[in-house]
Structure formats: C-alpha cells, structure tokens
Amino acid sequence: MPKEPEISLAEKTFVLEALKQNLRVDGRNIHSFRDIQFSFGDDYGFVDVRLGKTRVLARISAEIIRPRPDRPFEGTFTISTEMGPMASPSFEVGRPTDLDNTLSRLLEKSIRRSTALDLESLCIVTAQRVWSLRADLHFLSHDGNLIDTACIATITALAHFRLPVVTVSGEDITIHPVTERVPVPLSLLHWPICVTFSFFGEDDDGEMVCVLDATAQEEALREGDMTVTVNKNGEVCQISKSGGVAVEAETLMKCARKAAEKVKGIDKLIASALRGDEIARNKGNLDWLKEGRSENER
C-alpha cells in the first residue's frame, strides 16, 4: 500500500508551534471553516461540495423494491462510500482503510440512526412496494476533513433530491415522469451535520488546542480527534471520540457548544445554496412551477 508522504521535521515543528499560538498555516482562525462551495448537476440529487481543496460528490438515486418482511411500512436508505486513488494515492480500491470504515459508520450513525430521513414516507404500497434510496459518495480530492464534507454533501443531496410522483389505483402503480408531474422533495426531519475537531496538545496557557476543519497536513499531525453531529435545533445526534490525546470534559463540552454554533451557519449556507439552485433551475418557466404547487402568490 502506498504510504502518504511523511511530513518533514521542520515543517512539523513549524505547524505545531504556530498552532500553539493559535495560528494556522493557511491564515485561518482555528475555529473557522474553509469556504464551502456547492455546485448542483442537471439532475435532482446531484451535488458537488468543495471545502477548500477537499471535494466530494454525492448522488442520490431511487428505485422501487419490495420491502423487508419485518418492516413492511418502511423504505430503505443506504449510504455507499468508496475511496479510491482519485482522492489520495494512499487509498486503494477494494481495500478499505480505517478512515473508510470510520467514515461510513459515522455517516450511518449521523444520518440514518438519527432518523433524518423519514423512511415511512418512502412507502408506496404496504408490504408490496417501497422506494429504496441510495446515496453514492465519490471522493474526488482529499485535503482533510473528509467526514464533514461527506456529511454536508449527503444532506445537501438529500434535500435537493426529488422523488417522482407515484399514483396507485388498485393493483396498478404508475410512476409519473418529471415532465408530467412536478416531483416531490423527500421528507427530511432534520439536517444533522458533522463537525470534526482536531486536538493538538496543550498551548502555553495549558489549554487544549482544538482546531476545526483541519487540512490533510494538520490531520497527519494531530494527536486526537472528535466528531460531533448536531442539527440546527441544538440536538446532538452522535459523538465519537475514539482514542487520541485525553481531553478534559469541560473542553469537550466547549467543543460541542462550538459545533452547535457552527452548524447553524452551515445549515444556512446549505439552505441558501439550495434556494439559489431552485431559482436558477426554474428561470423562464416559473408558470410551470406555480401550477405544480398548491400555494400561490396572493
């Protein structure tokens, strides 16, 4: 397996000493994210999220299947993540790294276990037909913080996705094409967003240095990390800190509160990006949009 190039001693000392004075190599504040950029594809549920040089592509697809016999009212939702050499030469296809496992479990816990997606709303005919949703994540470039980027991409793609309208009459199920009926958005109950903190030991005042949105270089040098998943309502959906440097409980609580604050900002960014796309998409044929909605401008 090709190894990541090791960071030279001089560089390592420089980065760590700077962090102790709360300075970062790229000039950011220790608690600030890089710019988040969204670009949407022609289809619904296709989004490309960039966080600095990190780039993740999410694609939602849906098909109709027979539900599991023990859960006849529920649709299914799976998240598939696969890292290849596209993101970083140290990732190999078919041989999952630790990061790969952590990432897929974290997304699972953050989005699926916190019931962000109402699975019962995906039911078409009980015990007969349900929607099966699938989120495919492609990692195009790795410059740190893949977890947060992947989570933002998945949530944005889910919020952007539209299911075709299905009508049931007796035994027949009709799927109406997008051109015939306006497709409907998924029922997302909340938007869980992951925020990862990287710990770099204590600074001169004896306080733990907690950095947000670490780059690949910072990730290689960090002593420990913690991922907190919060939604904008201040509900913590998941916390995981496995190993690494031991941190005071008070510091961890501060991190959790910081995460809740950050998530509100990210939530707004996602919402405004989605609104921007909707406006761009419906340019010129807004009448068509009005017809499909029950509400109209009064």
């Binding site: 276990r113 998941q238 916390i239 995981s240 496995s242 409980a249 961890l252």
Partner: peptide, 8 residues
C-alpha cells in the same frame, strides 16, 4: 480526562 467518548 476523557480518552474515548461515544454516543449514538
């Protein structure tokens, strides 16, 4: 000092 913390 907390070395591991996990909540689901």
């Amino acid at each position: 000092k907390i070395v591991a913390l996990s909540m689901e």
